[in-house]
Computed example of a mutant assay.
Amino acid sequence: MMQFPALVSERLVLRSLRASDAPDLSTYCQDIEVTKYLAVVPHPYTEEDAQSWIASQDKGIAGINLGITHDDKLIGVVGIKASSERDVGIFAPTIGYWLAPAFWGKGFMQEAVRRLLDWYLPLEPTEKMCAAAFEDNPRSINLLKTLGFEEIRRGTGYSAARGESVPEVIMELTSERFLQQRCA
């Protein structure tokens, strides 16, 4: 079973996912307002889908994915995929995330992503981190810009929930820019 350290921030704990998270995970991912912005999460999303995905975490085949918890309640997920996206020209780890709508607009996702990057970037000898956000998701694009990500190109990405390709913005954060921003 893959276990990662719990990462604590001011209001959140990022921790390994548990089988007991499946009901909350499936409830949140049944909301099209969550899944339409994600590449690989289908809609509808069942509790069996959640259980299967959590089991894949235990095998270590899905990258690093941590539950975002607030007051001991799962409110989202943040994760990093290895740089295996060579077919689309991404040669760096890719960060991804989602948050339950009830927690949008409160700074939780910025706090979670920053905490994961604070932990990961010093451990990984990579020079950069990538992210992709669909063009119709300005919240995500703004979050990434706030954290120091810069647009490197535009393209299209597939949204499983929508069942179609969607225009997207590919962004990149260098370790140097992230550290400069953290020290500023």
Rank of each mutant, 00 (worst) to 15 (best):
I75P: 01
I75C: 05
I75V: 15
I75H: 01
G76V: 07
G76W: 04
G76R: 04
G76K: 03
G76F: 04
G76T: 08
G76N: 11
V77F: 02
V77R: 00
V78I: 11
G79I: 02
G79M: 05
G79R: 00
I80Y: 04
K81D: 13
K81E: 12
K81T: 10
K81A: 13
A82L: 11
A82M: 13
A82T: 07
A82P: 01
A82R: 12
S83R: 14
S83N: 14
S83A: 15
S84K: 12
S84P: 01
S84G: 15
E85R: 14
E85I: 02
R86S: 08
D87C: 04
D87M: 14
D87N: 15
V88H: 12
V88K: 14
G89V: 08
G89I: 06
I90A: 05
I90K: 07
F91E: 09
A92P: 02
A92M: 11
A92G: 07
P93L: 07
P93C: 08
T94A: 11
T94I: 06
I95G: 01
G96A: 13
Y97M: 05
Y97A: 01
Y97I: 01
W98A: 03
W98F: 10
W98D: 03
W98Q: 03
L99D: 03
L99R: 00
L99N: 02
A100Y: 00
P101M: 11
P101G: 13
A102C: 11
A102W: 03
A102G: 14
F103Q: 12
F103C: 13
W104F: 10
G105C: 13
K106C: 11
G107I: 15
G107R: 12
G107M: 15
F108K: 02
M109R: 01
Q110D: 11
Q110V: 13
E111L: 12
E111S: 06
E111H: 10
A112Q: 03
A112M: 06
V113I: 15
V113R: 00
R114K: 14
R114D: 14
R115M: 01
R115D: 02
R115G: 00
L116W: 06
L116D: 03
L117G: 04
L117I: 10
L117W: 01
D118S: 13
D118C: 10
D118K: 15
D118G: 08
D118W: 09
W119R: 09
W119I: 06
Y120H: 13
Y120Q: 06
Y120A: 12
L121M: 15
L121F: 04
L121R: 00
P122C: 09
P122F: 04
P122I: 03
